[in-house]
């Protein structure tokens, strides 16, 4: 099958978005109650109104910072953990327990437990870190494990130091896995951070405004904040993708 050209691809994407907007409009008309399912036009209007307020941008900025901090911490500790696990079978066993346990614990349990132990404003960043850590750790470790034995032999015969082998061979050879882990974690980071913000309700956060809109049965605002989160999350992922292109 022929690959569509750039213009055709964008055209197809726009057509798909339009189709779903039409479904959304039809659904909204069928419900007939704007606070349950507001129309795309209503939502757009509400979003534009929100965007005129400085609080909207402050909330977006703070949530974005929380996501970035949680993801950065998960990436850093995931990387260090995977490195330790790659060189020590003991560390591999020790870290495999939290990695697999956290993977199966529901996000809501993590948030509620975190709320018991930590102050409200730290909870979203902590939850984001905890949800992303196993993904980053597992992916990076898989990357390290899949470095071809031929490269190890090359390093051995040419007496390449361990530090050089790690930095110049092992990490670049694992970049595919590290990249996949980061992109997987991007979506997860947004979902878990906003969920934690909803439950911990720090005053300046996107999650808090989502909860407020729900409490006041303000459907258009609820949808507008949701659209804002989705757009910001997509932009964030694009930025990460762009940054990863350098490697």
């Amino acid at each position: 099958m022929n690959q569509p050209t750039g213009e055709k691809r964008i055209g197809k994407k726009l057509a798909a978005v339009l189709l779903w907007l039409v479904f959304w409009q039809l659904g909204s008309m069928a419900f007939g109650r704007s606070f349950v399912l507001p129309s795309p036009v209503f939502t757009c209007k509400a979003l534009l109104q929100l965007m005129a307020q400085p609080l909207f941008w402050r909330s977006c900025g703070i949530t974005l910072l929380r996501v970035a901090a949680g993801l950065a911490l998960a990436s850093l500790l995931g990387f260090l953990g995977a490195w330790a696990a790659a060189i020590s079978s003991w560390m591999r066993e020790i870290l495999s327990v939290p990695a697999s346990v956290i993977k199966s614990v529901p996000v809501m349990s993590v948030i509620l437990i975190a709320l018991l132990c930590l102050s409200g404003s730290i909870v979203p960043t902590f939850v984001c870190f905890l949800m992303c850590f196993p993904v980053m750790y597992t992916n990076i470790l898989q990357g390290f494990d899949s470095v071809p034995a031929e490269y190890r032999e090359l390093a051995q015969v040419y007496r390449i130091s361990d530090a050089k082998y790690f930095g110049r061979i092992m990490v670049p050879a694992s970049m595919g896995y590290i990249r996949a882990g980061l992109l997987l974690s991007c979506g997860l980071a947004w979902k878990s951070t906003v969920a934690a913000e909803v439950l911990s309700s720090p005053r300046v956060s996107m999650g808090y405004h989502l909860l407020s809109a729900k409490m006041y049965l303000d459907g258009p605002s609820l949808f507008a904040w949701t659209v804002g989160i989705v757009l910001l999350s997509m932009l964030f992922e694009k930025a990460v993708r762009l940054a990863l292109r350098r490697w």
């Binding site: 031929e150 032999e153 090359l154 015969v157 040419y158 390449i160 110049r168 061979i169 670049p172 970049m175």
Partner: peptide, 25 residues
């Protein structure tokens, strides 16, 4: 001994330029 080796496959690291491959060893 310090052996210099050419393996059956070239084993040049794909993310490095040819010169960087030589510099690495």
């Amino acid at each position: 001994r310090r052996p210099a080796v050419v393996f059956q496959e070239s084993r040049l690291l794909p993310w490095l330029s040819l010169k960087q491959n030589l510099e690495l060893v």
